[in-house]
Amino acid sequence: MRLLVLASALTFAAASQHVSTASAQTPAASPAPPQTTRSAPPTRDPHSPGYVSAIQLPDGAVPSPTADGNFIIGATHEPASEMTAIDLTNGTVIEFTMSSADSRYYPGIARDKGTFGTSDPTDPAKLIITTSHPAPYMRKVAVYVPKAYVPGSEAPFIVGADGTDRMLFAALDALIAEHKLPVMIAISIGNGGGDAQGSERGLEYDTMSGRYAEFVENEVLPRVESEAHVKLTHDPDGRATMGGSSGGSCALIMAWYHPELYHRVLTYSGTYVNQQWPYDAKTPHGAWEFHEHLIPESRHMPIRLWMEVGDRDLFNPNVMHDGMHDWVDANERMAKLLGAKKYHYQFVFAVNAGHVDRAVKEQTLPEALEYVWLGYQAKGEK
């Protein structure tokens, strides 16, 4: 258990690429609807009626990496010891770029700057967007390879969203050297640009299908093996996904629709809300469907999940007014259902924390990685 002292809670909020929603703005189409302004998210009490019962940890402590269930941390968030190193000393990072022109899965879209969308007057859960159009992109991929990796051997790996994740690389650099994690490769994949409905990022991360996992499998991983000179395992128990905000919902989507590829998932402020676009009648409420229908009505999936939400996480009832845009409520619902279905999961409610809170991630990421990888054993090992 790591004890921590007071640190400023830094949030990515709207200025960060991890933000998974957009302020309602006047769309290009005429007539223009009234413009609305999103207010600051309210601070939620982790003991609110309807929320999951959770263990309140001493301030500055994090859960044990061996414990399932629900936990409350805060309100001080000092970096874990593994997150304090300035440079990577036990591994290297290889970077390359990928172009939309070379993708069979994502040729590229973008939403016009300064536009968003309007709610369908016949269904507030559907968003009408008229300003999304084809557009090219370039994305960067960064690959962390530990010095302990044996060339030619088949390695477990973790795939992360939203580009180069220096925190992930730092955590692995320390934890692998400490023998707290298996020797693994980390792959950070940049998104295709923009945010939320009508953007390339939104299309990739918020779509409820196996398409993004298939893109990673068939277009990204072969490039990783070629550029970084590594061999990646095909064992789903040796594959993990992670992300924050829409990148978090994407991480679970990858494992849910392709459990033969991924079994381990780690999410910060997961966007388990109604943000899918284009509309799909099979999953009309986007990632809200996870806790509304998919988890309660599906067989038990082979997924081990670590998830976090902040007490000041996003709350965006504007534009759609569908009751499905509260990030705290969505994550609480997820935890309740995961517990009811007897999943191996750990849910952390962070006090004094915003959306994909940097200080909380620095505090919890080492423990989260240990929890997600608990029990992993490479095929053939005894």
Rank of each mutant, 00 (worst) to 15 (best):
Ile185Cys: 00
Ser132Tyr: 09
His179Tyr: 06
His229Pro: 01
Ala7Gln: 11
Phe96Glu: 00
Ala368Met: 02
Phe169Ile: 00
Tyr105Cys: 11
Glu381Ala: 13
Met138Gln: 14
Pro134Leu: 05
Gly375Phe: 02
His18Ile: 08
Pro259Asp: 03
Ala161Arg: 12
Leu369Ser: 04
Ile253Val: 14
Gly50Phe: 11
Gly310Thr: 08
Trp288Asp: 08
Gly202Lys: 02
Gln276Ala: 04
Pro107Gly: 02
Gly192Arg: 13
Ala40Cys: 11
Val62Thr: 06
Asp326Ile: 02
His293Leu: 06
Thr283Pro: 03
Pro107Lys: 08
Ser16Tyr: 14
Thr92Trp: 10
Ala281Ile: 01
Lys361Asp: 13
Ala15Glu: 12
Cys250Glu: 13
His293Pro: 05
Arg264Asn: 03
Leu305Val: 12
Thr122Met: 05
Pro49Met: 05
Arg333Trp: 14
Thr37Arg: 09
Ile158Gly: 05
Thr122Ser: 12
Arg299Gly: 13
Gly117Asp: 01
Ile189Cys: 01
Ala142Asp: 11
Asp235Phe: 15
Gly60Arg: 03
Glu289Val: 00
Leu57Thr: 02
Ala15Pro: 07
Lys382Val: 14
Thr233Tyr: 15
Lys147Asn: 10
Met208Leu: 10
Ile189Thr: 04
Gly210Asp: 10
Arg211Phe: 15
Ile55Thr: 15
Ala22Lys: 15
